[in-house]
């Protein structure tokens, strides 16, 4: 019966060819450092899932944001757990993406033919930091407010266009409801879409080109 179902599905979806292509492929034997990329991916998925749950109760409005988070912490069943995971997941994701970058750097994995994997990776690193920056404001507490005030003010020091960038970031001269709306939207739409798109390319390339082998010391 099970075989029949699988066959029926395979005839239509081509599951077997996906299995052969992705799972049954040969790869060089590699060490634990090569798990950092998949760990980054896992953390991104965790952030996505917990983030979706948080968005159910979070209200991106300066009057309500703080109390909506308090409600998540005290009122919603396991809200504190979901928020705790999202909070720490953000930190871990930055760490893991960064060390993953270091691993591919120190092993020269960015060289031919994996240049594009590297380039998409760099943009992913920047996008991950962008997620951290925009997400930090959302609780609308003292820490968030003042860190973002200073963070956006830094953009204002850019010669000539600084003021313009500052106003785009803040949606005005000061932090306001507009700033929060922008950060929220970038945090839950713009950046995640960019990240999902880039991860797709990144993963396609990893499967297509194969994972690099551990560099050998040819002198030996």
């Amino acid at each position: 019966m099970a075989v029949k179902v699988v066959n029926w599905l395979d005839e239509r979806l081509g599951l077997l060819s996906i299995y052969n292509l992705v799972f049954d492929r040969k790869v060089p034997k590699v060490n634990w450092w090569f798990t950092l990329g998949s760990a980054s991916l896992f953390l991104f998925v965790v952030q996505g899932i917990t983030g979706v749950f948080l968005s159910v109760y979070y209200v991106p409005d300066p009057e309500k944001a703080y109390s909506s988070i308090q409600y998540i912490m005290n009122g919603v069943a396991f809200g504190w757990l979901i928020r705790g995971i999202h909070h720490w997941g953000a930190t871990l994701m930055v760490i893991f993406v960064f060390i993953h970058m270091l691993r591919t750097f120190f092993m020269g994995a960015y060289k031919y033919p994996r240049e594009i994997t590297w380039v998409t990776g760099v943009v992913l690193l920047l996008a991950t930091l962008g997620m951290g920056f925009t997400g930090y404001l959302l609780p609308w507490n003292q820490r968030a407010y003042w860190a973002t005030t200073v963070g956006t003010a830094i953009a204002g020091t850019v010669p000539v266009v600084g003021d313009f960038i500052l106003r785009i970031l803040r949606g005005g001269n000061d932090l306001s409801a507009v700033t929060l709306a922008r950060f929220f939207s970038v945090h839950i739409w713009f950046l995640p879409v960019v990240i999902v798109g880039l991860i797709s390319v990144h993963m396609y390339l990893v499967v297509r080109l194969g994972i690099s082998s551990e560099p050998k010391d040819e002198a030996e």
């Binding site: 634990w32 798990t35 998949s38 928020r83 705790g84 995971i85 871990l92 082998s213």
Partner: peptide, 27 residues
Amino acid sequence: GVKFYPDIIYKDLIVAFALFLLLVGLA
């Protein structure tokens, strides 16, 4: 080398599982 499934993916899953425990613990 080895096959992606199971040799590579099992390491990835172990790391993912450890990370999950770590996250819940931190939370």
